[in-house]
Computed example of a mutant assay.
Amino acid sequence: MQSNVGLVIEEKAADIGNFMVGRLLPFRKKRAVGPFLFIDHMGPACLKEYQNLDVPPHPHIGLSTLTYLFEGSIFHRDSLGNAVEIKPGAVNWMTAGKGVVHSERTPEYLRDESKFLHGFQIWVGLPKALEQSEPSFYHIEKEALPTWEENGIQYKLIAGKIEGKSAPVPVHSPLFFIEIKTEAAQKIDIGDRLYGEVAMYVLEGSVRVEGNTYGTKQLLVAKKASLCAFETNEETTLYLFGGEPFDEERFMFWNFVNSDKAVLEQAKTDWKNQNVDAFPKVPGDEEEYVPLPEPRQYK
């Protein structure tokens, strides 16, 4: 029987400012899974009293960002005027559209003490018609996310829709982002609820797929979402990402995503020149910014 596991992506280290993350997407053999373009696994990290997360104001276009924490806290500020602390289980959903700027830092009340930080940073592409839309931001508390249990299996729908369930995160295309937890070994066949493409990330524990065992720090990409079936070990936490892919190719440079390279070139020029009409300042965090990186190549 032919395997449904089309690709196993090993988590690789990457830097975001003074913080190390495990980058899952993009990967040279797989640029996206459904509309998901970029997935970073932050931590787990224990930051001492003199260590803090400090990602100064930086721009985005043509995508939505999704932040989801397992541990710790991040204070988000953006050029729309939002200033929000995100804690574990909540969702920050920011749609950049034609352009937005934001910063992510350790909250002031935690900066002089030890703390943990662990979570996901995710980029989701926008449909072509919305790539130049007005930017927006939504914060969704953890209590608003759908959770349910089936035969000892705990589910949480963090974003998107699956059969009979819908999360309040205002996504722009058909997608799903699901947390699954088991305390005992379980057989799970969820393929009949999924659509498009799907990838699995095991945060804790391990899964067995078609006779092979996979653990943490790997992203499994399935050939067909409809064949998504697996077994977990006793205590396992995993995440399924996926949905319908776009018809058009998406180009990526740094924090910019678009189906038109000319739009990316203009964004690069605007950010390099600090054009505040294209990329306004972030209220309350106006002293710093992340410069345009070199070399200027597309991914």
Rank of each mutant, 00 (worst) to 15 (best):
residue 7 L to F: 00
residue 154 Q to M: 06
residue 122 I to M: 12
residue 89 G to D: 14
residue 6 G to R: 10
residue 208 R to N: 15
residue 107 P to A: 05
residue 36 F to Q: 04
residue 147 T to K: 15
residue 287 E to F: 03
residue 253 F to Q: 05
residue 70 F to W: 09
residue 232 T to G: 09
residue 273 N to I: 00
residue 92 N to Y: 06
residue 35 P to K: 05
residue 142 K to V: 01
residue 39 I to A: 10
residue 266 Q to E: 15
residue 186 Q to C: 12
residue 117 L to Y: 09
residue 155 Y to T: 06
residue 48 K to V: 00
residue 96 A to D: 05
residue 32 A to I: 02
residue 198 V to E: 00
residue 68 Y to A: 10
residue 13 A to G: 02
residue 68 Y to Q: 08
residue 100 V to W: 04
residue 82 N to E: 10
residue 3 S to V: 01
residue 39 I to M: 13
residue 154 Q to N: 14
residue 188 I to M: 10
residue 276 V to R: 14
residue 280 P to H: 09
residue 173 S to K: 09
residue 184 A to H: 13
residue 273 N to F: 02
residue 108 E to F: 12
residue 193 R to F: 06
residue 191 G to R: 03
residue 3 S to M: 05
residue 281 K to A: 08
residue 143 E to F: 06
residue 89 G to P: 13
residue 93 W to M: 09
residue 142 K to I: 03
residue 41 H to Q: 14
residue 178 I to C: 01
residue 287 E to W: 04
residue 279 F to Y: 14
residue 167 A to Y: 12
residue 173 S to E: 15
residue 179 E to N: 05
residue 84 V to C: 04
residue 193 R to P: 00
residue 154 Q to R: 15
residue 191 G to P: 05
residue 278 A to S: 15
residue 20 M to P: 01
residue 208 R to K: 14
residue 15 D to A: 15
residue 143 E to A: 14
residue 200 M to A: 09
residue 258 N to S: 15
residue 259 S to F: 04
residue 158 I to A: 07
residue 218 Q to A: 07
residue 188 I to E: 09
residue 187 K to G: 10
residue 8 V to M: 02
residue 263 V to P: 00
residue 50 Y to K: 12
residue 243 G to M: 05
residue 20 M to N: 12
residue 69 L to I: 12
residue 211 G to K: 08
residue 247 D to H: 07
residue 67 T to H: 04
residue 148 W to I: 06
residue 241 F to S: 04
residue 243 G to V: 05
residue 243 G to Y: 06
residue 122 I to E: 08
residue 283 P to Y: 08
residue 81 G to A: 03
residue 16 I to Q: 13
residue 189 D to R: 07
residue 208 R to P: 00
residue 215 G to C: 04
residue 27 F to C: 06
residue 281 K to M: 13
residue 146 P to N: 05
residue 236 T to F: 05
residue 74 I to Y: 06
residue 282 V to Q: 06
residue 235 E to M: 09
residue 198 V to C: 07
residue 285 D to G: 02
residue 122 I to Y: 08
residue 275 N to W: 11
residue 256 F to N: 08
residue 153 I to H: 10
residue 285 D to Q: 03
residue 228 C to Y: 09
residue 73 S to W: 01
residue 61 I to E: 07
residue 8 V to K: 07
residue 277 D to W: 03
residue 204 E to W: 00
residue 236 T to L: 05
residue 204 E to H: 10
residue 47 L to S: 03
residue 98 K to Q: 07
residue 220 L to C: 02
residue 156 K to D: 02
residue 62 G to N: 12
residue 118 H to M: 01
residue 30 K to G: 01
residue 244 E to N: 04
residue 182 T to M: 05
residue 13 A to N: 03
residue 140 I to N: 11
residue 231 E to T: 11
residue 217 K to Q: 11
residue 60 H to K: 12
residue 175 L to Y: 08
residue 102 H to S: 02
residue 172 H to W: 07
residue 99 G to I: 04
residue 153 I to Y: 08
residue 228 C to E: 00
residue 249 E to C: 01
residue 184 A to N: 13
residue 42 M to L: 15
residue 258 N to K: 09
residue 116 F to L: 14
residue 168 P to R: 13
residue 100 V to S: 02
residue 64 S to W: 10
residue 7 L to A: 01
residue 30 K to R: 13
residue 78 D to P: 01
residue 267 A to Y: 08
residue 243 G to C: 03
residue 247 D to L: 10
residue 118 H to N: 14
residue 56 P to D: 05
residue 36 F to S: 04
